[in-house]
Each structure stands twice: as structure tokens, then as C-alpha cells.
Amino acid sequence: MKAYVIGLQISEGVAKATGKPYSIGKLHTALPMAGDGARGMMGSEYQCEPAVLRKLDGINLPAYCDLEMQDVMRWGKRVQEIASISVVPNDPQPVRAPGTAVKTA
């Protein structure tokens, strides 16, 4: 699945209550909307291992990426998780050069 990665969060530490280490990652994306009468993008959030998110270190966000998804069981529910991320080198969305604003009516 291709999507714009607009942000990420990594939280690591030691739980005060149990003393066990934790490592949690979240990936925030913007996905194209589909369907009759829909246009633009909608935001989504996915769980992700911090090791996978670290592949985006040094990458300016937002970035157009190819996301590989996998289904995992969490607390008795099946959810989608990001298995791998790769930045797509040629962003399909044209970017206007500075100073080429569209004239308003």
C-alpha cells in the first residue's frame, strides 16, 4: 500500500508498575479517499515496531512511502501492523515551485 507518512512516534522505557521494558511505535499516514463524492486524503494511525520506524531516520516528512502490512493479534483482536517501510523515490504528486501560486477568482 502506498501512502504519505506524515508523522511517527516512538516511546521506549521501563514500566513503573512492572519494571519491564517497553517499546511502542505509531505511524501516522494520509491515505487517498476513494468512492463517489470523495476527494482528498484521510488520516490513519498504525502500530509499528520502532525498529521499522527507524528506517525513516533522516527522511524529511511528509514522505511518500510503500507500506507492507501484516495482521497481528493484540489483546484478542486482529489488527493491521506495518511490517516494512520503503520510501518511494519519485513522489507522484506534482509539487509547485515557490512563487507559482494559483490565481484566486
Rank of each mutant, 00 (worst) to 15 (best):
K2V: 10
A3I: 08
V5P: 09
I6F: 04
I6Q: 04
L8V: 09
L8A: 02
Q9V: 15
I10K: 07
G13I: 15
V14M: 03
V14A: 02
V14K: 08
A15Q: 13
A15M: 10
G19T: 11
G19Q: 11
K20I: 00
P21C: 08
P21L: 11
P21S: 12
P21K: 07
P21F: 10
Y22D: 09
L27Q: 07
L27H: 10
H28I: 06
H28L: 05
T29W: 02
T29F: 01
A30Y: 03
A30V: 08
L31H: 12
P32L: 03
P32M: 03
D36L: 05
D36T: 08
A38F: 10
A38T: 02
A38Y: 04
R39S: 13
R39M: 12
G40L: 04
G40C: 06
M41H: 04
M41P: 00
M41S: 10
S44V: 02
E45V: 15
Y46G: 01
Y46E: 02
C48Q: 05
E49V: 13
P50Q: 05
V52I: 15
V52D: 02
L53M: 06
R54P: 01
R54D: 00
R54Q: 11
K55M: 07
K55G: 14
L56K: 08
I59E: 12
I59H: 13
N60L: 04
L61T: 13
P62N: 08
P62Y: 07
A63C: 12
A63N: 10
A63V: 15
C65Q: 06
C65P: 04
D66F: 00
D66Y: 01
L67I: 10
M69V: 12
M69D: 05
M69N: 05
V72P: 11
R74T: 13
R74S: 15
G76M: 01
G76C: 01
K77F: 04
R78M: 04
R78W: 00
V79S: 01
V79G: 03
V79Q: 09
Q80V: 09
Q80H: 05
E81H: 04
E81Y: 01
I82A: 03
A83W: 04
S84P: 13
S86R: 11
V88Y: 04
N90V: 02
P92S: 10
P92E: 07
Q93W: 09
V95C: 05
V95L: 13
A97T: 04
P98R: 01
V102H: 00
T104V: 15
T104M: 11
A105K: 14
